[in-house]
Nucleic acid binder design. Structure first.
Lengths: 347, 347
DNA sequence: ATTAGCACTCACTTGGATAGAGTGCTAACA
DNA sequence: TGTTAGCACTCTATCCAAGTGAGTGCTAAT
């Protein structure tokens, strides 16, 4: 059996219609609505073929046809037209993603929010894996008699501080010296690299007082690095789920929302996806909860290296054309807005 | 009509029963279940009186009775017994709230999470209003040729940084001098205080180069202060809503969850509540969405001054005794765990 | 190859009929 | 006079049967 022109046309009509209506469509309605010059009976024959080929399914004997994952896949790969964003949409994205240049994490949060608003789906974004980030600068700043702030700046521009309560006596020069030694030792090293080093040892040979100071600071230093590596997950538009007929069943909505509660697992799922625009449709998803959802993720890059992800989750019946365009435009904007000095593409 | 002993006993039984079962209860069931030595008919008479007094309602003619807000109010104020936390529960709370002493916001986030886990309700927490917080220390740290990190430490222990890209040329001494001047000028002042000052003017009279540097840093300084004042809202246990029969209706669940989406409005609602343990039941809430919910909030204090809030939201039918005990224990722990040096009670 | 016609299928809606939990009233009882 | 048993009544929830309508699949005609 062949996927001829007419079959493709019918399949295209069914998919587009179902994406908008969420209702199974029958031969008669299809013929009337899309005036394609052939009778319902002919359409029925073609539909029957398409079903045999695995592109359509039947909820029950006498219901209309519904596209399968395979149909959506064909639609996404070959049938759908590229959706061009309007100037207004482009402007909205540019404005929202480029104003608060200082705080990167906030921008990512805003990106997720904007994405859910524009698509009416659940959106998510993760910050780049910071383990590839390199340290640039370390400082220890005395605040009062027993409080010191440990400050770490990474090449990506990420800054982290921790207030430490020290029991060991210290003075400003010693702190400043220790900070300089730490900066000297770790500058240019990646966080994950440092995590595997035996850093306590690095400070053993130095003078007694410094060694003691270092001994009480280093564990906190490691903790802070660990915290800096953490990938942050931002979710938005969770309540959009209630506007989607597929999830009007409370059990299903619950399953989906509970998946987002297991943040670590979901973050891992995202991290493990390939880079670029990845669409997985229905049963293409290995996760059981996602079997009747589609997941779209795209990557943004900072200096071509640090890679974060942005995407949406929704019913398999979603406006792939619009959504992919929106996501693409957003990731492009994120990547360029945060382009810093230097940094070669390495992939 | 008088609220005699027996009426109170019956009311108590109805409220307790309904809190656990969520089902209207009839005279016969009540009489059997709570073996109170009087016949269903007598109970019916008393119930009828209680209904006339506004403590009970009737979903329809031949259904059992359901407590009104007024009944819950009486129950909370006079009838319910104090719930004593088990040692295990106490330990859980202490452990989770006192380990990561360094990061205050994280602790608040954990508190919200723990609270929703222990109560199976939706929980929330807001960080203290930082506008009463005083500045302690300001520093400007050069990172590379065009990047400087502005670091602000407040008395509460809160630290904030922003990476600034400067176009104005600078050197380390000048930066350090400016930081010292800023610290001298603003130390001990509250954030909201500084926000109202004309700080650009403060640096006009100094030497030209410094004035220029200050001019490019001050706007960012103000932005950062503004950010430090923001009250952060943490929500947790949103999916618990699905386990509550009252919200099995998808429309209701949606209303509630959407309220949490309007974060600013909800934060304001919380901030405006009185301090101490405040319980508002059903129609005691002015917010329309909350008319059939109960809202419990309690305050925690840092140094008796900075006040944050912690609480839960759920159906009017909730285990007030257990929940208030849990919240009380948690706010006590938060307040003592973060008690810093000095600070008089001022309220 | 296409189409009209027709029997058939299945979910959804509508309208009783019935069961069950509970009320409210009345009259009898202690 | 307060308490209780008895009974008619009310209202929801559930079940079932019949009818409706959108749609299919097959067959025979074009």
């Amino acid at each position: 059996m062949d996927l001829n022109e007419r079959k493709l046309k019918i399949l295209h009509a069914i998919v587009s219609d179902f994406i908008h209506s969420a209702e199974p469509i029958g031969s008669r309605t299809l013929s009337r609505k899309y005036s394609m010059g052939i009778s319902p009976a002919t359409i029925r024959n073609e539909m029957s073929d398409l079903e045999e080929m695995g592109f359509l399914t039947h909820p029950y004997t006498s219901a209309g046809r519904v596209p399968s994952s395979k149909a959506y896949r064909l639609y996404v790969n070959d049938l759908m037209k590229r959706y061009e964003l309007s100037d207004g949409e482009k402007k909205t994205i540019e404005d929202k993603l480029t104003n608060g240049l200082a705080e990167f994490d906030r921008t990512i949060e805003h990106a997720a929010k904007l994405l859910s608003e524009m698509t009416n789906l659940i959106s998510f974004a993760i910050t780049p894996k910071q383990e590839e980030d390199k340290l640039k600068y370390i400082n220890l700043i005395p605040v009062d008699e027993n409080t010191v702030v440990l400050m770490i700046v990474a090449e990506s521009g990420k800054v982290s501080n921790t207030a430490l309560k020290l029991k060991v006596p210290y003075n400003e020069e010693r702190l400043s010296f220790l900070a300089k030694v730490m900066t000297y030792n770790y500058r240019g090293k990646t966080i994950s690299n440092i995590m595997t080093m035996d850093i306590i040892k690095d400070f053993e040979s130095d003078m007694e007082a410094l060694s003691q100071l270092a001994g009480s600071i280093m564990p906190k230093f490691m903790n802070t690095l660990e915290g800096m590596m953490d990938v942050e997950l931002y979710l938005d538009g969770l309540t959009n789920i209630f506007a989607i007929p597929e999830y009007n069943d409370i059990e299903r909505a619950k399953l989906i929302l509970e998946m987002f509660n297991r943040k670590q697992a979901f973050t891992d799922l995202l991290i493990n996806r390939d880079s670029g625009m990845i669409i997985t449709i229905g049963d293409e998803n290995s996760d059981k909860v996602l079997q009747d959802c589609s997941l779209i993720t795209a990557t943004y890059r900072i200096n071509g290296k640090l890679i974060g992800k942005l995407g949406v989750i929704g019913p398999t019946r979603m406006k792939y054309d619009e959504i992919t365009s929106v996501i693409e435009y957003m990731t492009d904007n994120l990547s360029t807005a945060y382009e810093l000095t230097g940094g070669e593409e390495d992939e």
